[in-house]
Measured scan of single mutants.
Amino acid sequence: TRVETATETAWISLVTALHLVLGLSAVLGLLLLRWQFPAHYRRLRHALW
């Protein structure tokens, strides 16, 4: 049971790290898009909202 718990903890930390990385890359990508294509971003936002 001790090994299982350790594996579970490792998986949880791995998944958390993955989610953090994905979230950060998504935010960075959005910022980059907004910085590179302001007109396109505004049009996209206008279409979405």
Rank of each mutant, 00 (worst) to 15 (best):
residue 1 T to S: 11
residue 1 T to M: 15
residue 1 T to F: 11
residue 2 R to E: 12
residue 2 R to S: 12
residue 2 R to Y: 12
residue 2 R to M: 15
residue 2 R to V: 09
residue 2 R to K: 12
residue 2 R to N: 08
residue 2 R to A: 11
residue 2 R to I: 11
residue 3 V to D: 00
residue 3 V to C: 05
residue 4 E to I: 11
residue 4 E to T: 09
residue 5 T to R: 02
residue 5 T to I: 06
residue 6 A to W: 07
residue 7 T to F: 08
residue 7 T to S: 10
residue 7 T to D: 06
residue 7 T to R: 12
residue 8 E to V: 05
residue 9 T to L: 13
residue 10 A to W: 05
residue 10 A to N: 13
residue 10 A to Y: 07
residue 11 W to H: 12
residue 11 W to C: 05
residue 12 I to S: 10
residue 12 I to K: 13
residue 12 I to Q: 15
residue 12 I to D: 01
residue 15 V to I: 12
residue 16 T to F: 15
residue 16 T to E: 00
residue 16 T to Y: 05
residue 16 T to H: 03
residue 17 A to W: 08
residue 17 A to I: 12
residue 19 H to K: 04
residue 20 L to A: 14
residue 20 L to H: 00
residue 21 V to Y: 03
residue 21 V to H: 00
residue 21 V to I: 14
residue 23 G to W: 10
residue 23 G to T: 08
residue 24 L to W: 07
residue 25 S to K: 04
residue 26 A to H: 00
residue 27 V to T: 09
residue 27 V to I: 14
residue 27 V to P: 01
residue 27 V to N: 04
residue 28 L to M: 11
residue 29 G to Y: 02
residue 30 L to F: 14
residue 30 L to W: 12
residue 30 L to R: 02
residue 30 L to K: 00
residue 30 L to N: 03
residue 30 L to C: 14
residue 31 L to E: 03
residue 32 L to A: 11
residue 32 L to G: 01
residue 32 L to H: 06
residue 32 L to T: 09
residue 33 L to C: 15
residue 35 W to G: 15
residue 35 W to N: 15
residue 36 Q to F: 06
residue 36 Q to W: 13
residue 37 F to H: 06
residue 38 P to E: 09
residue 38 P to D: 14
residue 38 P to S: 12
residue 38 P to G: 10
residue 39 A to M: 10
residue 39 A to E: 13
residue 39 A to D: 14
residue 40 H to F: 10
residue 40 H to C: 11
residue 41 Y to R: 04
residue 41 Y to S: 08
residue 41 Y to M: 11
residue 42 R to F: 06
residue 43 R to A: 11
residue 44 L to M: 08
residue 44 L to N: 00
residue 45 R to G: 04
residue 46 H to M: 09
residue 46 H to R: 07
residue 46 H to S: 07
residue 47 A to T: 09
residue 47 A to H: 10
residue 47 A to Q: 06
residue 47 A to N: 08
residue 48 L to I: 15
residue 49 W to C: 03
residue 49 W to L: 05
